[in-house]
Amino acid sequence: MKLLVIGATGMAGSRVVGEALARGHEVTAVSRNGGSMPPSVTAVRADVTDVGRMTSLFAAADTVVCAIRPRRGEEPSSTIRATSHPSGAPRPSRVSSSSGSARPIPPTAST
């Protein structure tokens, strides 16, 4: 399976990469700083806010794992749990920081 790991150099993302490799998956690791990866991993330096770049990376993957967090002090009151995939994957959900419950984000003209 072609696995795209966003935030691959962080604490959680690096563990996801290791486990995916151990299970025989083909891994593309995305990070903002382009940290070092095992030779069998395709490392990509990218900004997650670059919609065009992320869309092309999503299109090449079977599965996307998002393991990012905001920089300290930039945490919003809620976080996006899932990202819409061009293939028609589930709509994004917003997780309330107070209740932890997910609710769908309504579609807009751009989604």
Rank of each mutant, 00 (worst) to 15 (best):
S36E: 15
S36T: 14
V51E: 13
S87F: 04
V65W: 06
G34R: 08
S40E: 15
P38T: 09
S31I: 00
T55I: 01
V64R: 14
A60W: 02
I80E: 04
R72V: 11
S56K: 04
S84Q: 11
P39Q: 09
R81L: 12
P38M: 10
A43G: 09
R71T: 02
A61V: 06
D50P: 01
V65I: 15
R69T: 06
E74N: 10
I80V: 15
T42D: 02
P38L: 12
R45T: 12
R69P: 00
T42C: 09
A46Q: 09
R71I: 02
T49F: 08
R45C: 01
C66P: 00
V41H: 01
N33D: 13
S36F: 07
D62Y: 07
R71F: 03
I80M: 15
T42L: 13
V41T: 03
L57H: 05
A43Q: 07
R81Y: 10
S40C: 07
D62V: 08
G73S: 01
T55R: 15
S87L: 11
A59L: 10
D47Y: 04
V64A: 12
E74H: 13
P70N: 10
F58K: 08
H85E: 01
I68K: 08
V65A: 14
T55M: 11
E75R: 03
A67W: 12
T49R: 12
R81K: 11
P86D: 09
E75A: 09
S77L: 14
A46K: 12
S31M: 07
C66S: 13
R32D: 06
G73F: 02
V30I: 03
D50H: 00
V41Q: 06
V30W: 05
T83F: 15
G52F: 05
L57I: 04
E75P: 00
S56F: 00
V44Q: 06
